[in-house]
């Protein structure tokens, strides 16, 4: 009989778990929608920025004299890896896949004899990398308790990076985040931030009517300004992509968990019923054989 009671408890606990995962899945679905909207809303800014940057970069005649945000410091000795992850777990392989590509990169750079510095954004990435690369951490930025990411958060990170770059703290900066593709697929991505990778516009910098842009104050200053701004934009984009990816990953992870819990409940219920019937049969046999013995 104790066995039956155990089974019953087990079923009750798995049912409770299923309720929780189901709720988490639905919450993630709602948050995902908002995160996707935010990511979509941010796209026009980044696109226009890219376009103008592309125009400018291709119109700069002498790339050597251009901003070091575009051409780099001329070295690649010190690398800054900015690992962007989420603040919370229970979202499948989301955090570990980002940490994995960051780890591979860091190991590769270290074995090439480069200096590596790591800046983590989000608690989970820091946790995943701390044991192995803890001494390389320069800072950990957390966005705990922030409901809605806005540009000023990205700006804060960007300012930190530009200040460090101006002081010669590193030569190459790379960000790691997960690109959101769909609920079932989030692609961990690495993107070089400094020196900037710019898609050069194939088309002529001249406009349709043949007039070239005039730049105020001048091309170099505008380009430098834009490249600095672009860092903030890219980080913001990374954060938003990450937010959407996190919710997507959590949604599918929780969907799986809910399904597994359902299967488990079914199995346990069958075991429970069999056990109950076996007990009844046993009791019956005991009664009947007792009666026969008389």
């Amino acid at each position: 009989m104790a066995n039956l009671k155990e089974l019953k408890n087990r079923i009750a606990s798995v049912t409770a778990t299923r309720k929780i995962t189901k709720a988490m899945q639905m919450v993630a679905a709602a948050k995902l929608r908002r995160a996707q909207e935010a990511a979509t809303a941010a796209r026009p800014y980044a696109e226009r920025m890219d376009k103008v940057l592309g125009n400018l970069a291709s119109s700069i005649a002498d790339p050597k004299g251009a901003s070091k945000y575009l051409v780099g410091t001329g070295k690649d000795d010190t690398h800054l890896l900015i690992v962007m992850t989420s603040e919370r777990g229970l979202c499948g392989g989301f955090n570990s896949s980002i940490a994995k590509i960051a780890r591979t990169r860091a190991q590769q750079l270290l074995s090439d004899g480069k200096t590596v510095k790591i800046l983590t954004v989000g608690r989970k990435g820091a946790d995943a990398l701390r044991r192995e690369f803890g001494e390389l951490f320069i800072d950990e930025i957390g966005f705990k308790g922030i409901k809605r990411l806005n540009f000023s958060h990205a700006e804060g990170v960007a300012n930190m990076i530009t200040t460090m770059f101006e002081e010669g703290g590193f030569d190459v900066a790379t960000i790691f985040f997960a690109q959101f593709q769909s609920v079932i697929s989030q692609v961990p991505t690495e993107l070089q931030l400094i020196p900037a990778k710019i898609k050069e516009n194939a088309q002529d910098k001249k406009q349709d009517d043949g007039a070239a842009y005039e730049y105020e104050p001048d091309e170099g200053i505008v380009l430098d300004y834009l490249l600095k701004r672009n860092i903030g934009t890219q980080i913001f984009r990374g954060l938003l992509e990450n937010a959407a990816s996190e919710q997507g990953a959590r949604m599918s992870a929780m969907d799986n968990a809910t399904r597994n819990a359902g299967e488990m409940i079914d199995k346990l219920t069958i075991t429970y019923n069999r056990q109950r019937q076996a007990n009844i049969t046993k009791e019956l046999i005991e009664i009947i054989s007792g009666a026969e013995a008389l």
Partner: peptide, 19 residues
């Protein structure tokens, strides 16, 4: 409000990029 001075844009303005 351009960084080099304010200016007013009408239709058909010359192409400019300014901070």
């Amino acid at each position: 409000p351009g960084s080099e001075g304010d200016f007013t844009v009408f239709e058909g303005h010359a192409p400019v990029i300014t901070t």
